[in-house]
Write a protein that binds this DNA or RNA. Sequence first.
DNA 1: GATAAACTTGGAACCGGTTCCACAAACGCC
DNA 2: GGCGTTTGTGGAACCGGTTCCAAGTTTATC
Lengths: 335, 335
Amino acid sequence: MPVTIYDVAKEAGVGVGTVSRVLNNNPRVSSETRQRVLQVIERLNFHPSPIAQRLSLRKTLSIGVLAVYFTRPSVVERLRGIESVIADSEYDLMVYNVETPSRRDECFRSTASANRVDGLIVISLAPADEDVGRWASAGVPVVLVDTSHPTLPCIIVDDVSGGYEATEHLIKLGHNKIAFIGDPIHTAFNFRSSRDRYEGMCRALKDHNIAFNPDFYLAGEHGRESARIMAHRLLDMDDPPTAIFAASDTQAFGVLQAAKERGIEVPHELSVIGYDDVEMAEYLNLTTVHQPLFDSGLRSVDLLLQSIDSATAVPVRQQLPVHVVERSTTARLKH
Amino acid sequence: MPVTIYDVAKEAGVGVGTVSRVLNNNPRVSSETRQRVLQVIERLNFHPSPIAQRLSLRKTLSIGVLAVYFTRPSVVERLRGIESVIADSEYDLMVYNVETPSRRDECFRSTASANRVDGLIVISLAPADEDVGRWASAGVPVVLVDTSHPTLPCIIVDDVSGGYEATEHLIKLGHNKIAFIGDPIHTAFNFRSSRDRYEGMCRALKDHNIAFNPDFYLAGEHGRESARIMAHRLLDMDDPPTAIFAASDTQAFGVLQAAKERGIEVPHELSVIGYDDVEMAEYLNLTTVHQPLFDSGLRSVDLLLQSIDSATAVPVRQQLPVHVVERSTTARLKH
DNA sequence: GATAAACTTGGAACCGGTTCCACAAACGCC
DNA sequence: GGCGTTTGTGGAACCGGTTCCAAGTTTATC
């Protein structure tokens, strides 16, 4: 039923090779023949089958993106960066969302066979050496975003120094009772960012000779609600913190909610700083650590397309800058 | 280099047909042969090429989602519903993001050739008869979400009655100076929802014999910032509205921002109601009209898979329910 | 023990493109 | 006019699966 290259060839009185050459703008076709073929293509409304092209070219013409919780604001922003580059390329974008370890393993495995995707971007998921080996032997180029591996190109931010800067910002405002709210140490996906941000915090405290009260470290399931509850725990203490560093904006929102619920005024009675600088952070005037989310997506595709073309994957480690964006949830304490 | 079905066949000492039958769990293979072939498959680490399968089966095994502004919270939520069903199916998910009319046309056109996608979900974009015709002649099943066409299955909500209910909620609280903030009448993508919600509002006012002040209708580019500015325009009036109905939660957030900037207390001095019930609405305690976003995505895939299987696309018009969620941005006026 | 039916199996044809090779025609050169 | 080169073209082979048909083998039936 659908029109094929053979139909076009027969109708135009030429061979299939010639039609193919016309399609691919190969100069070795006389201009009269080219005209004739183009007219037939137009008349029959012929569109070459992408699948047949893919089989023949041995390329899938699509690149996969493997993301955890792809509806989280920060991930969405990265995806937007990725999409913006892919839309202008010859590639299609396949999205694989991961919400369970088994789904992750399934995705890691299935993308590691030839002819599934021409390249893969993995967001926030740390692949094991075994996974990396499978991709390598299948010849699938991979770029990591917000996670890293010694042999793979990756786009990251320095979460340790982000945590350091956030903390230093609070210290400079005169705080020394600073609490941390973050993700569990052992998550299903082994996320590093919360831990790194915490480490940055510890270093900053140490550099400023501030002792850290271990009770001020709280970790729980990622999410606003969980952070809200943890914040209440902190504020219930006899000697509560005067500032809270949340490992993400989402968690910072939970902290703000808790403060509101108890009538604690932010920032004059409590300073709150987040991390990510998602769109809502600006709206809610949240002081936070900005990281270039959109840009990270954009660059990851650039890197991927490069390593698809060059075939020799050069492991590049691009570290993007972070900086504190001061808004109105942090301030010097009112005495 | 990659292992093919021929390699497996030769290694196992059988024909390719037999290997294929083993792969597809065809019962017409003796169990000894099956065992032998499976062992070879395991040993050679063979994975059938999806592309070759697709060409041979004449199916792409992927379904496309065409979304406008796929990072908008409401769209993300629909996508999540879509993804949750597709992840469990044999299909891959291809995402096409549209931000300009030319990109929309390009996507409409490119998806309408055979062998690109097995089915298509279109979110919030109204296809022209011409587009629908192209899909039909290419035999591509299409399901529409948040938009409709007489000959295509679609998942919608009744925006008119949503607007009606929102307005009635305000009226019952004693408001009769109610303003509307929505999208421009003529958008690049010809969105209907804002207009329909406005129409619902008009009907409710009429049913309650409340005259509508035309100055209370403001339309501008979708977005928080634009809504904020429009809200200021309303509140600058000599006789300003006591309640504002925003055509989306995002716009309602802009209204709340404006109120805050002028020290107007919500809800006692001004009531604000939104539309969509995105996640942030709950956090910000925004009274709004809930529409089942996740569910709309979910159902659209169900419908699509159904019409892929049955081949005879039964035009179904599923109308999902909406209801007002009362939170704390609407209240009776304080005198 | 002959015949039919059921079960297995191999392999060619096919899906719809690309590409390489062979060959013919045109051209330039001496 | 003969010979090498360039240009244009057709078509076979190939990409890696699925499926159908023919044929061989086994089992059931009388």
